[in-house]
Design a binder for these strands. Structure first.
Lengths: 136, 136
DNA sequence: CTTTGTGCAAATTCTTTGCACCAAA
DNA sequence: TTTGGTGCAAAGAATTTGCACAAAG
């Protein structure tokens, strides 16, 4: 709890109860959850929580670089507190998102060559994970 | 028109009037359009066209590997008839999507190492394009 | 007090579905 | 005549917005 609160302060986010809980959840559940997943899990503990607050908070966190938003699965946004350089693997069978290490400096040269400025790089790999392969 | 029709047949898609027109549009407008963009442009020429048909058709094309769907911009799907290996650059300012060449064999080893099978790799780069940089 | 956060309900956006009609084989 | 394509209207899912109330400083 206190660790999360300090983290929030460091990124200029006022640590309200809900914000701390949501950030805490993200730190302890590295499953790239959707807003709804976070809401469903936390509402058990905080019955007054609303989905709107979860959305508001995640948006604020993203703006303040506390997390990145990933759009790898069907029509939903997922959130990742690991803001370091890495790729994501989406298993189309079990719908899980896995982190994949990478040394991506990929094709940034081409963009820069034309004078473009890069803010974000997303590498999304889709397929079937090892567990789902086995079950065949 | 005939070129498109043959292309469709080759990928096991019956070349109806609408399908040919939509495929034609995609071939001649390499702007990664959304379903709505395609609809708005084509309805001028084909007043009876419906957005549903555009969606149906794009879905069919995707299933038959005539195009890939990209989710790089905010909440919309865009379509690209270039199914070869390349990355996409999204300019957050002008909202355009540009093709970026790449030699991506990126971090596929890590996935395969764990026994996963890769179907698709999407590389999305976001930032500001050269034109939008200049205007500052 | 005054500002900021929270949460309900309604709205919005993109996409899909159900269904009836139409066209082609 | 049977199959498959088209298109309208309605539904659906994820996210955002407007607004009122609550909390914090």
């Amino acid at each position: 709890m206190e660790k999360s609160a300090n983290m929030l302060r460091k990124f200029d986010v006022k640590p309200s109860f809900q914000r701390i809980k949501i950030f805490d959840y993200l730190l302890n559940n590295r499953i790239h959850p959707t807003a709804d997943t976070i809401y469903r899990d936390l509402v058990k503990e905080i019955p007054t929580l609303s989905l709107t607050t979860v959305y508001n908070t995640l948006k604020l966190f993203e703006k303040n670089n506390l997390l990145i938003s990933i759009k790898i699965s069907e029509n939903e946004q997922r959130f990742d507190v690991d803001t370091s350089n890495h790729a994501h693997f989406y298993c189309k069978t079990c719908k899980e998102v896995y982190d994949i290490p990478t040394e991506s400096a990929i094709c940034t040269k081409t963009v820069e060559q034309y004078g473009g400025k890069i803010d974000e790089i997303h590498i999304y790999i889709k397929g079937k994970c090892n567990k789902c392969q086995e079950g065949e």
